[in-house]
Simulated scan of single mutants.
Amino acid sequence: MQMLLTLRFDGTAYHGFQVQKNALSVCEALQDGMQALYGMRPPVKGCSRTDAGVHALEYCVSYMPPKLIPPQKLPLSLNRFLPGDIRVLAAREVPDDFHARYSAQSKEYLYRIWNSPVDDPFEAKYHWRISQPLDEAAMARAAAYAVGTHDFAAFMSAGSKITDTVRTVHFFRVQREGRAIVLHICADGYLYNMVRILAGTLVEAGAGRMPPEGMRAALQSGRRALAGDTAPAKGLFLYRVNYGG
């Protein structure tokens, strides 16, 4: 049996999850902890590639443990060897053919915007500050156009080798919480920087620089120039991975 870990991490100090040649990644820090716990570095399968600076409230990793540690004891055992900005929340056994990424049915992300001329020093690492007042109702109308199965080519950054750009968005919600505006999206998969470009597009709609229907126009055209800017990584959180069953 494999083990499935649920992690939470602050991505500020890391260059994404995947191991990098010349930069510290979450995976490298996790495997350093596994080296201390198991005496070896087992290969791990992450549920998603994350960009530098992106955070996770629930990030899932599957691997074959070199030795048996009961799942209920594994979080505390492994956390002793991890840096304070990475924590194992839970562990459970999964079948040998399980894959943290390819077994997922959908993933949910949050994007946090701080809508104020003045930043919050305690929250500045975890949101994108927009000084101009934003109309969350206009943002919600724009988000509604993204729900469903569409070609999201206009919402993918250059450099990706993916050719199939059709994805299904199950829901895309906009909620204001005081000065914070939280975007919550669930989809069966995502393109490179897709959520961050969608967030940038909603900000354009909320600021009145783009009508909400501009989201539909960008989807139909497939042209990156019709979508908004790529929002900063620091406001993005992987929120939940849904495996079903």
Rank of each mutant, 00 (worst) to 15 (best):
F17K: 03
Q20F: 05
N22L: 13
Q31P: 00
G33E: 06
Q35E: 15
L37K: 08
G39F: 13
V44F: 08
S48E: 03
T50V: 09
A52Q: 08
A56W: 04
Y59C: 04
V61T: 05
P65L: 05
P66S: 10
I69F: 09
P71M: 11
Q72N: 04
K73A: 15
L78M: 10
L78K: 04
N79S: 10
R80F: 09
V88L: 04
V88I: 14
L89C: 12
R92Y: 03
V94H: 06
F98E: 10
R101C: 13
R101P: 00
A104T: 09
Q105F: 07
S106M: 04
E108H: 04
L110Q: 11
Y111K: 03
W114S: 03
P117S: 12
K125P: 00
Y126M: 08
W128L: 10
Q132L: 14
P133G: 10
E136S: 15
R141G: 00
R141H: 08
A142D: 02
A144P: 01
A146W: 12
F152I: 11
M156Y: 03
T165C: 14
T168I: 07
V169H: 02
R176W: 08
E177A: 13
E177I: 04
E177K: 14
I181C: 05
A187C: 10
D188C: 11
G189N: 07
Y190I: 08
R196A: 12
T201P: 03
L202I: 07
V203Q: 02
V203M: 06
E204W: 11
G206N: 08
G206I: 01
A207F: 03
M210T: 01
G214N: 05
A218P: 05
L219A: 09
Q220D: 15
Q220R: 15
S221D: 09
R223T: 01
T230D: 03
Y239I: 00
Y239L: 03
Y243V: 06
G245S: 13
G245Y: 12
